[in-house]
Design a protein around this nucleic acid. Structure first.
Lengths: 214, 214
DNA sequence: TCTTCGACTGATTCGTCAGTCAACCATGAG
DNA sequence: CTCATGGTTGACTGACGAATCAGTCGAAGA
């Protein structure tokens, strides 16, 4: 009981709890069936809540997806921005950290990652312009990291930071997909280390064997 | 008027033409609005054909998408397999060729690429298992190329070929996405060259500047 | 006790398409 | 000329699912 609230607080955080409860259920079913194939009634059922209540807390089905996205993406973006702004770290180290962040997140909250990657980054790209902007935010950070590294001579200057950032993100995104399909294992710290190591070698050092005969 | 047909050719290839005509229209509208948001009537309208005729040539709306996919993917896959089997080429060269193939295709048939990437590779992954298999085909080829390169000492042996293949494909996929969003320009040979060059440097040589201070 | 307020319910409404089908030509054969 | 064949048409139907809304219930305040 949250009796502490003065007279004007009948349900202080109950509402917040309910909303979270619904969001949690939504993430689960979205991850299982995909946004388009889940009915609002599926979310309600999973949350153990009446159909109509969804519309008490959310504008629409789309709004539910938006909330899932915004709640998580803003956190991710903040971490990214902090990383980028840190002058102590080399560009390579920043990129490594981002990759590690995502790969670790896969173990902690696979469903959430899956929903964001599959349902938000993709679906109806041209309708939800705001989401494209959100992605651009993260994307810009990576581009800036690369550009910074190039200026300081840490990274190759003779490539497009723009395209490089796309490659970096694309690599991570597809690893997430591979994980979801069960093709890439990274559920244990050891497996995750292999993946991180491969990302580092491939993107930072290159696939070519430096000792290799040309 | 197609009066040319002799007596025994009422509709020999007219049917094939019609089918192509519908497929072409379908690719266009799928690219514009996405599979889910296009109505069958949109396809019909674009093709300048009656609604019902779609169902004369195709089982269902899904079947239309399938045909788009299969017609193009099989071609792509064949090229990939031929590349992989060529003992003349170094692994790096094979990977370069694949990247070039895709980047060039972006200029020739952007809508087709877009549909395959956006609508097939993504949507309803777990429903259309056949498509996952198809993708695995291409994906396996890349993994084999990497493994071959590793065996011959051309590529680093201390990384997961599986994950590497995912990174490679992910990079290319996202470049396509960037192109579709208008963020990556590669419509002229010069622009395409920049992109190819960046792919090569990033994935084969690594982002790190070899001269860079550690 | 009575009233208010808002969380909560779920049957109903309403729009949207995918897919069907009966009728319509055009052509070629008898 | 007549019939048959098969491509072609588009109005129609049936299902599905998002969103609504009239109403229930319980707790807090008067």
């Amino acid at each position: 009981m949250r009796s502490a609230a003065k007279k004007t607080a009948p349900t202080p955080e109950v509402a917040a709890d309910r909303k979270k409860q619904i969001l949690k259920a939504a993430v689960e079913v979205f991850a299982e069936r995909g946004f388009h194939r889940t009915r609002v009634s599926d979310i309600a059922k999973r949350a153990g809540v009446a159909y109509g209540l969804i519309y008490h807390y959310f504008e629409s089905k789309d709004d539910v997806l938006n909330c899932v996205f915004e709640e998580n993406w803003s956190v991710f973006l903040k971490v990214l921005r902090d990383l980028e702004a840190n002058p102590e770290l080399a560009a390579a180290q920043k990129l490594r950290s981002i990759a590690a962040l995502l790969i670790d997140a896969l173990q902690i909250a696979p469903a959430t990652i899956q929903v964001i990657i599959q349902e938000v980054s993709r679906s109806d790209r041209f309708v939800h312009t705001e989401k494209v902007h959100a992605f651009e935010g993260a994307f810009t950070v990576v581009r800036q990291i690369i550009e910074g590294g190039q200026r300081r001579g840490e990274l190759r200057a003779d490539l497009s930071a723009q395209v490089g950032a796309y490659i970096f993100f694309g690599a991570l995104e597809t690893i997430c997909t591979g994980f979801m399909l069960g093709h890439i294992r990274c559920s244990t710290p050891e497996e995750a280390a292999v993946v991180k190591h491969t990302v580092e070698l491939t993107l930072l050092h290159g696939l070519l064997d430096p000792k290799g005969a040309k």
